[in-house]
Amino acid sequence: MAHSLGRRSFEAIAQFLIFLAALIFLPAWSLRYWQGWLFFAVFSASIILMTVYFLKADPGLVGRRLKAGPVDEKLKSQKRIQTFASILIVLLILVPALDHRFGWSSVPAIVSIAGDVLVVAGFAVTFFVFRANSYTSGTVEVAKDQTIVTTGPYGIVRHPMYSGALLMFLGMPLALGSWYGLLLVIPMAAVLVWRLQDEERYLERELPGYPEYRQKVRHRLVPGVY
């Protein structure tokens, strides 16, 4: 079973990375795009290393993470939210690639590298979220024996995985060398807030102890802000 999970995981990663490469380099219409190559390398290495680690440390989490996206969501509201999120994620890569092709932006190399650092930081936050909460799923759901997690990043904000995602989304257009791509971070953040608010309503109904946890940890996404 472990071998099957590993195979399915790396097949899914391979398919996603092929799609990601196409999304970066086809609209850019050039392989002479160092920002695209560096971002692709950083993103690929991060996702592969995390998958290797959790296949050994927590294969159940990896299995739960294989189901994600609008099709796998059970709640109708989350299907709509994930559809918007999927479109915006594609645009976060597509717009910078087109920006590179047509020369709309002139982003300093140091800023692009800082964007990659933000992407890595986002993955790092996600890593610690997965370490703290084995029930972290790619869809909004509550497992039978699931309990409230209040340790690690969950002691700082209630939705730390979305905090990590926000860091990644902020870093992606910069890493790809586009100022215009940053404009998409605003609707992306709005969709994240929409998703977490809808998720909280579900968790209050389905996860015992969640209302008390909300009282204990006041901020949802950004410490001291929201």
Rank of each mutant, 00 (worst) to 15 (best):
D116S: 15
D116T: 00
V117E: 03
V117I: 02
L118V: 01
L118W: 02
V119P: 01
V120D: 00
V120G: 08
V120T: 12
A121K: 01
A121Q: 00
A121F: 04
F123H: 10
F123T: 03
F123W: 07
A124M: 06
V125A: 02
F127T: 00
F127Q: 06
F127P: 01
F127A: 01
F127H: 09
A132V: 04
N133Q: 06
T136N: 11
T136R: 04
T136W: 10
G138W: 06
V140K: 05
E141G: 12
E141L: 12
E141W: 03
A143C: 09
A143V: 02
D145P: 00
D145G: 00
D145Q: 00
D145E: 04
Q146L: 01
Q146K: 09
Q146A: 00
I148V: 13
I148Q: 06
V149D: 04
T150K: 14
T151C: 04
T151P: 01
G152I: 09
Y154I: 10
Y154H: 09
Y154E: 00
I156D: 04
R158V: 11
R158N: 12
H159T: 13
M161G: 05
M161Y: 07
M161F: 10
Y162P: 04
Y162N: 03
G164H: 02
G164E: 08
A165E: 13
A165F: 13
A165R: 00
L167E: 00
L167I: 03
L167Q: 00
M168R: 06
M168K: 06
F169E: 09
F169V: 14
L170W: 08
L170H: 07
L170I: 10
G171S: 02
G171K: 00
P173F: 11
P173Q: 11
P173D: 05
L174D: 04
L174G: 00
L174I: 01
L174S: 09
L176M: 13
L176V: 03
G177V: 11
G177W: 03
S178N: 12
S178P: 10
W179T: 02
W179N: 01
Y180V: 14
Y180P: 03
G181I: 03
L182S: 08
L182G: 05
L184C: 15
V185L: 13
I186M: 14
I186G: 13
P187R: 15
P187E: 09
A189D: 06
A189E: 07
L192R: 08
L192V: 15
L192F: 15
V193M: 11
W194M: 11
D198I: 05
D198N: 11
E200C: 06
E200Y: 04
R201D: 13
Y202R: 01
Y202A: 14
L203F: 04
L203E: 02
E204L: 10
R205S: 13
R205E: 07
R205N: 12
E206S: 13
E206F: 08
L207A: 03
P208E: 15
P208T: 04
G209N: 03
Y210F: 14
P211S: 13
P211G: 14
Q215M: 14
Q215K: 13
K216W: 02
K216G: 06
K216Y: 02
K216C: 05
K216E: 06
V217H: 11
V217P: 10
R218F: 07
H219K: 12
H219M: 10
H219T: 11
L221D: 10
V222E: 07
